[in-house]
Computed example of a mutant assay.
Amino acid sequence: HQPKGYSHAESATLTTAGLTAWRALVVDGGIKPGNSVLVLGSGGVSVFACQLAKSLGATVFATSSSNDKLEKYKALGADHLINYKEDPEWGKTVRKLTDGRGVDHVIEVGGPGTLPQSINAVAIAGHIALIGVLTGSAGEVPTAKLMAKQARLQGLIVGSCSDQRDFVRALEANGVKPVIDKTFGLEELADAFRYEESGKHFGKICLAF
């Protein structure tokens, strides 16, 4: 069932982006209040992960190539904002901001092009949820550094029905609503795909018909 008070468009964001973020942080990650979370980019999973992490009492680090999107992250409660184009060594920056400790959880959506920096950023015995491959489907992994960090790198795709039921109960308790960047009519489907391809969106793109 959809959460009480949710529209159909809001509910449509839950079964993929929302549930993936929930599984990464709660089911697989076992997030606790006081943990730190790094979210990469501003797609649906990362934005939802920021919202969930803040609702669970975590400190959030957010990266984007757009300062305007970073301001939107700030409005969602993100604690530290990093423009990865201006700061290509953002993994090192995250460690500095955590006094050398690193973050407990990384929402990794880039794949091989960003994974080395994510491994730099993660804490010893931390958790990297490998969700996306925006920079390619294969590439080199700094295995020695991953081993030295004793970090857990876990791939995941969405989640189970029971995960989703738990997720919905949590949303009803914490009042989190998804960020919908723009809604298109069904006849504007091609425009919706073009908008997604442009990378201008922050959060989810929805269709209404």
Results as ranks from 00 to 15, higher is better:
D68A: 13
A148L: 15
V176W: 09
H127W: 12
A144R: 13
D79T: 09
P178L: 00
L81R: 06
G175C: 02
N83E: 05
Q150G: 05
L70F: 05
L134Q: 07
N83F: 07
Y73I: 06
I119N: 01
L76E: 05
D87L: 07
D166Q: 15
S162D: 15
S64T: 10
G126D: 04
D104S: 14
I157L: 14
T98R: 05
R101N: 14
T93R: 11
A121K: 03
V109W: 01
R152C: 13
D79K: 00
K96D: 13
L81F: 05
V168R: 10
Y84C: 09
V158S: 03
A125S: 14
K96I: 09
Q154R: 14
A123V: 05
A125L: 13
G77Y: 02
I124A: 07
A125H: 13
G159L: 07
I124N: 14
A123P: 02
R165N: 12
L130F: 04
L146N: 08
V179P: 01
G136A: 10
S160E: 04
I131F: 03
S118V: 15
C161H: 13
D68F: 07
K149H: 11
V168H: 14
G132A: 07
P142W: 14
I131R: 06
L97Q: 10
D68G: 12
A121H: 10
D79E: 12
A138Q: 15
R152V: 15
T93D: 00
K85F: 05
G102Y: 13
G155M: 08
S137Y: 11
G139Y: 08
E89S: 05
G159V: 12
T143D: 07
P112A: 14
P178V: 02
L134F: 10
K85D: 10
D163Q: 02
D68C: 01
L146I: 01
A173S: 12
A78F: 09
H127P: 11
S160C: 08
V179Y: 02
R95T: 15
V106G: 08
E140G: 04
L153Y: 14
V94Y: 01
N174H: 11
D163N: 02
A173P: 00
V109S: 01
L70A: 01
G110E: 01
P116Q: 03
L134N: 04
I124F: 14
D166Y: 01
S162K: 08
K85H: 11
N83L: 06
